[in-house]
């Protein structure tokens, strides 16, 4: 029986989506500095339509990660992203908490 946890569990969602034939990218928090809302190892799963489940930052940079995930799915190549107040795009997708994070985005290869 699927519990409520399953619904919130991005790795199970990723497997389900792959099973449905959807193209899927997995984003993982690799490293954090300072105050970052989600710890290393946290996952966000994205499909080619921009549907997503999970979180890598508590909402601050998810939009940017989802946009990059589309490129990763299209190219089939993984990508490392960095976000933080020192980032030149901070005004757009910075972490308001003042932390910095590195997020790895990779395709799930069937």
């Amino acid at each position: 029986m699927p519990s409520e946890t399953d619904v919130l569990e991005p790795l199970k969602v990723a497997e389900e989506w792959c099973g449905e034939g959807r193209a899927v990218a997995l984003a993982t928090v690799i490293e954090t500095w300072g105050s970052a809302p989600r710890p290393a190892g946290s996952h966000l799963v994205v499909d080619s339509e921009g549907n997503f489940q999970g979180s890598v930052s508590g909402g601050c940079v998810e939009g940017a990660v989802i946009a990059e995930a589309a490129d990763v799915i299209a190219s089939g190549k993984p990508k490392m992203l960095e976000f933080g107040v020192a980032d030149e795009t901070a005004w757009r997708v910075g972490l308001s908490c003042g932390g910095r994070i590195r997020v790895y985005v990779e395709p799930i290869d069937g």
């Binding site: 790795l11 497997e15 290869d109």
Partner: peptide, 14 residues
């Protein structure tokens, strides 16, 4: 990550 690795991981967790 390969789908087979994801499946192995989810099976272990279950």
């Amino acid at each position: 990550m390969e789908l087979s690795a994801l499946q192995a991981l989810n099976a272990a967790r279950a």
